[in-house]
Write a protein that binds this DNA or RNA. Structure first.
Length: 107
DNA sequence: ACCTTGACCTTGG
DNA sequence: CCCAAGGCCAAGG
């Protein structure tokens, strides 16, 4: 993974609005459409290494599971910004929270 | 080149 | 809801 890929992922994550979320796979699709490479696992790798500098808690699994090892911290942020959660309150309700960047404002 | 390892995803039982 | 299997992409040994 080069800097271009890392930057692409991080800048996208920064654009996810509070109260919304994106799955690793969704991030991979958007970035992949631009750079022609990378999958969900690459996004996960970027988040693991550099996620600290962005709102990492807004990136979850396709089923709404929180990042391994950071569940507590993530939940605190998610609740604070009113992100839709499933009934048990342990996962994000991706049906309502899922966000995708609007087509405009590409570079 | 082969195998293993991941903040993954989808499907099927 | 949990688990296993297969598919996935890239890095590292």
């Amino acid at each position: 993974m080069d800097d271009e890929y890392v930057e692409s992922v991080l800048s996208l994550v920064e654009r996810i609005p509070p109260g919304r979320a994106m799955a690793y796979g969704a991030v991979a699709e958007v970035v992949g459409a631009r750079l022609g490479r990378g999958g969900p696992r690459q996004v996960g790798a970027v988040m693991a290494a550099f996620g600290a500098s962005v709102p990492w808690w807004r990136v979850v699994t396709a089923s709404g599971r929180l990042p391994p090892g950071r569940e507590v911290a993530a939940l605190r942020e998610l609740v604070a910004e009113g992100t839709p959660l499933v009934t048990d309150g342990t996962r994000v309700d991706m049906r309502h929270a899922s966000w995708r960047p609007s087509a405009d404002h590409e570079h």
